[in-house]
Design a protein around this nucleic acid. Structure first.
Lengths: 130, 130
DNA sequence: GTACATGCAAATTATTTGCAACAGG
DNA sequence: CCTGTTGCAAATAATTTGCATGTAC
C-alpha cells in the first residue's frame, strides 16, 4: 500500500463520515466539509474517499460496477458476483424466507418487505486459474 | 399501468436480454441489438429497459440509488434501505455465517467469500405515516 | 526537499430528456 | 388517426483526471 499523509481535508472528511449514521454520498460530505473549509473541492472528497476505502478505514456500500445491469428474470433470486472477472451468475437456491423472518423478528419497528443478496467470491474459471 | 406497444425495438431488446445469462448493461444490449437494427439508438434501449422493468417483465439488479454511498464502519454488516425515504440504517444482527455456508454447500465449483445483503421495506417513520 | 495532495476545470461515463417524425393498434 | 415510440442530439448527473501549486513529514 502506498504512503499516505494526514491532511486536514482527509481528517475532516473522515470525521464528518463518522459523525453520521446516514451512509452519505460524496456530495453530501462535500457540502458538510465545505462549511468548515470553504475551498475544498469535490474532487478532493472523491479522492480521499477512494484512499480511505483502499486502506479499509471505510467502506463503499456494495454495487456491482458503475452501470445498471438487467436480468430477464423478474422474480427475486440470488446472484453470485465474481470479484475477479466481474461476471454475475444466477444461484438456484430458493429465496430464503427465513432470512427475512429472522430480521423481521429483530426489527419490530420496521416493515421488512424483503432482502437483496449477492454472494461474491471466485467463479469456477477464476478459481481454477489461481 | 400505461398502455404500451409491441415495437420491433422492444422485442429485440427483450430477446437479446433473454438470450444471455450475463446480466448485461444497457450499452452491451445496445451493441447487440444494433447488429440487427443498425440505427436503433441507445436512448431507445434505456427507455425500453425502463418500460420492461415497470411492467415487471425484467428486473434491474438492486442498487440503492445512483450515487455511491459510504460507511465509516469498514466491517461487513447489514443495512436496511427504506423504499419510501431512501434512508439507510445499520442492522445490529450479526453477519449470518450460516447463509454463506448454506450457499457454499450448493456452489461447490465456486469460492464463496461472503455476501452483501440489504434488507428493504419501510423505516419506523415511514411506517407510521402510512 | 520530495512526493503525496490539493484546487480548479475540463474530460469521461452513464443516463435522461426535448422534439419532430414515425408507426402500432 | 391517435398517441406511444423512435432517432438524434443536447442536457444532466456522477465521477475521474491533468496539471500547476501547495504542504506534510
Amino acid at each position: 500500500m502506498a504512503k499516505t499523509r494526514n491532511t486536514k481535508q482527509r481528517q475532516l472528511i473522515l470525521d464528518e463520515l463518522r459523525s453520521t449514521k446516514s451512509h452519505p454520498c460524496a456530495e453530501w460530505l462535500y457540502q458538510r466539509v465545505k462549511a468548515k473549509m470553504p475551498n475544498i473541492s469535490l474532487g478532493t472528497v472523491y479522492r480521499n474517499l477512494a484512499v480511505l476505502k483502499e486502506q479499509e478505514i471505510i467502506q463503499e456500500l456494495p454495487r456491482a460496477g458503475s452501470q445498471s445491469r438487467y436480468d430477464s428474470n423478474p422474480n427475486p433470486h440470488y446472484h453470485f458476483f465474481c470479484l475477479e472477472c466481474g461476471r454475475i451468475d444466477d444461484i438456484e437456491e430458493p429465496y430464503l424466507e427465513k432470512v427475512n423472518s429472522e430480521i423481521t423478528g429483530k426489527l419490530t419497528e420496521y416493515v421488512v418487505l424483503g432482502h437483496f443478496t449477492e454472494f461474491y467470491g471466485l467463479c469456477p474459471q477464476c478459481k481454477k486459474s489461481k
